[in-house]
Design a protein around this nucleic acid. Structure first.
Lengths: 224, 224
DNA sequence: GCAAAAGTGTTCGGCGTACACCCATGC
DNA sequence: GCATGGGTGTACGCCGAACACTTTTGC
């Protein structure tokens, strides 16, 4: 008694149940030492007036990743970033007749490259992760999964490249890490560990900004 | 210019593109020190005659996880196991008109509890992971992702509980780890490390099987 | 007593963590 | 010359890896 033998609803048949498929993109950034997430204020039912993670239906002929890239570009104007599939949620809209399937992605963007759309309907805004408002659907869960993954990714990948401009100081990089991990890090240990990874390398340039010693600029190896 | 403002194709609207949604379940087991995966021989187009990862369309009113559990039970008769979502593939069947979305899961089963269906159509069979045949669609990629995740999960979770009977010897446990990791492990280090995790605990029972010293039986804490 | 698998400790290198002072610049 | 952030080295504890012999049983 399996799907294969008892019906024609095989994996890719046309009789299959057809839930709405959407992509959601959890977009993180770090500004002034604070981890922030991009949310959209819903301007139509369901859940009108609630804030939600940006998302939308798949368009025709579009792959899941293409849809996520498009969504990200629509909201931030930015492309070519860290973007990774997160999890697929099967019950984001219990009211939906045929069910809904939301394929969640998460992205990291450099705030200096972002220009948010200036709309009043479906208004996007950055929210500090420590005080996000109540969210539509089950978006809190999506956000929690994203945050956990982000913390893990940071430990063993160069994901942070996508949160910073091409060149940056060690302090800037450390602030990004501290914002995401939510705890202070030791300066010496941080520098040693990061340089040991080969994710980043020193440039020959320095940046002077204030009446103190100039800081060396670094770059991510994945961008050079 | 966002999906929200330019059309009614909002996340959960009824105008959304409706690709076929299927679940795939990569079912692993370890028998005689070999990591094996359950495959199904396709008995209808597309890709008739090819082997593929078990899967099927979502049924009405069913969540993604419920569909995965059902699929697993249909193929192996087993429930209550390690089952975790893996990844969602958006392009498994390029021939599909509206696209296809495959939500892949992976599961670990104890071979002593499995009874494979005795069918000739859609025949299921265990394949040694080192010599799987060419697979339908892009199932090779699914399998690779699953194998990588399995190796990672094994390192820091008690996922192996699902591959063994309630009681087992240290050697049996070690053979499971060796089969998955694909390399021999040191007996002393293995015992020390596993006992340190608190995943497993010793029982008071021993098992004698051969003309040599009896082995102590252990159990997983998550099952006791 | 011997064959066969069970069971057991120690050493070493690498890595993460804790911790405090000098350096280069602007004013 | 002083205020400000940039930049550096050492010591210690933990963990993973390497490695060989004794114990218990059946025959």
């Amino acid at each position: 008694m399996t799907t294969e033998t008892t019906s024609t609803t095989n994996r890719l048949s046309t009789e299959a149940r057809r839930p709405a498929v959407a992509v959601l993109v959890v977009i993180f950034t770090v500004v002034d030492g604070a981890l922030q997430v991009l949310l959209i204020e819903r301007s139509a039912p369901p859940e009108e007036g609630q804030w939600a993670i940006p998302g939308g239906a798949l368009q025709h002929g579009e792959s899941l990743e293409q849809a996520a890239v498009r969504k990200l570009a629509e909201e931030t104007g930015v492309t070519d970033l860290f973007l990774e599939q997160l999890y697929t949620f099967g019950d984001l809209d219990p009211a939906s007749e045929d069910g809904s399937v939301g394929v969640a992605w998460f992205a990291l963007v450099d705030p200096s490259r972002v220009r948010l759309a200036q709309r009043t309907a479906w208004r996007p805004a950055w929210w500090n992760l420590d005080d996000v408002p109540p969210l539509a659907f089950d978006n809190e869960e999506v956000l929690n999964v994203a945050r956990t993954r982000l913390i893990n990714k940071l430990q063993y990948t160069d994901a942070a490249y996508s949160l910073l401009p091409a060149q940056f100081t060690m302090r800037e990089l450390q602030e990004v890490y501290e914002a995401i991990l939510g705890r202070p890090l030791d300066k010496r240990n941080f520098r040693r560990r990061l340089l040991a990874t080969d994710f980043i390398s020193a440039t020959s340039e320095m940046r002077t900004e204030g009446r103190h010693r100039p800081a060396r600029l670094y770059q991510f190896a994945s961008r050079s």
